[in-house]
């Protein structure tokens, strides 16, 4: 866990192997009186960066909801946790009109590719998809009456991550549903996506390419045509 920074700050912090020690330190610093360190913060203590990784090594706080339990698995990406039970999986989603989701919000594309990269690096099976005009929306009349069409949903079995995506995107509606199979969960109605070119594009770079989202459509789905 020694980041380049840890080295350049002159603090030594052993790798993950030192977990128990780090953890102890963590504990000790919890018990210290709050005013123990003079302000401005002293910087030369050896705990500085160890505490950082101490946070990483701490057990996850579990909460009641299933969503969070799923999320805890995400954290243990590189551990060889057995796959979750296949029956009646819960799917979480955020949804908005297609233009907002895949045309305007370019940081959204970056987040999805970042996550895909991470899953690749850690050999984790993909658990998030983009669904254009999802069929499951029929179950949510309260959502559809507020939704411009065509719509695009981001669906994941990781409820905690969807909570984060709701926080990030803000102008989206979030809900969850259950389905017996992935195919059923991600079924979609045919739709064509077309976006008008922005009137005055002043960014010193071009827009992300039309169709970038195809990497995230459910497996086997028809790539939509222009």
């Amino acid at each position: 866990m020694s980041t380049p920074a840890a080295v350049s700050f002159g603090t030594r912090c052993a790798g993950p192997l030192s977990a128990p020690t780090t953890h102890q330190r963590h504990h000790i610093s919890l018990l210290r009186p709050l005013r123990s360190r003079p302000f401005p913060f002293s910087f030369s203590t050896t705990t500085t960066n160890c505490e950082l990784s101490g946070g990483l090594l701490k057990p996850v706080l579990f909460r009641r909801t299933k969503g969070i339990a799923v999320a805890a698995d995400t954290y243990q990406l590189d551990s060889s946790e057995p796959a979750q039970k296949e029956v009646e999986k819960k799917y979480y989603f955020v949804v908005a009109n297609a233009k907002f989701m895949v045309d305007e919000e370019e940081h959204f594309k970056e987040l999805l590719f970042e996550r895909l990269r991470l899953y690749g690096e850690r050999n984790k099976e993909q658990d998030f998809w983009l669904v254009i005009e999802p069929k499951f929306l029929d179950k949510f009349p309260d959502i559809t009456k507020r939704l411009k069409r065509p719509a695009v949903a981001l669906v994941s079995t990781n409820g905690s991550w969807i909570t984060f995506m709701k926080l990030r995107l803000d102008r989206v509606l979030a809900e969850s549903y259950e389905a017996d199979s992935l195919e059923e969960a991600l079924a979609s109605n045919p739709a064509n996506l077309e976006f008008e070119k922005p009137e005055n594009w002043v960014a010193p770079y071009p827009k992300y390419e039309f169709g970038w989202w195809e990497s995230f459509l459910p497996p086997g789905s028809n790539k939509d045509k222009v």
């Binding site: 980041t3 380049p4 969070i68 999320a71 954290y75 905690s160 909570t163 926080l167």
Partner: peptide
């Protein structure tokens, strides 16, 4: 809003850039 903070905590723990800053 605990669920939002828990979700953020998971995001930060995921540590997307753990191995990114290599010169």
């Amino acid at each position: 809003n605990e669920s939002e903070f828990e979700a953020l905590l998971q995001e930060f723990k995921t540590d997307y850039n753990q191995t990114h800053f290599v010169r």
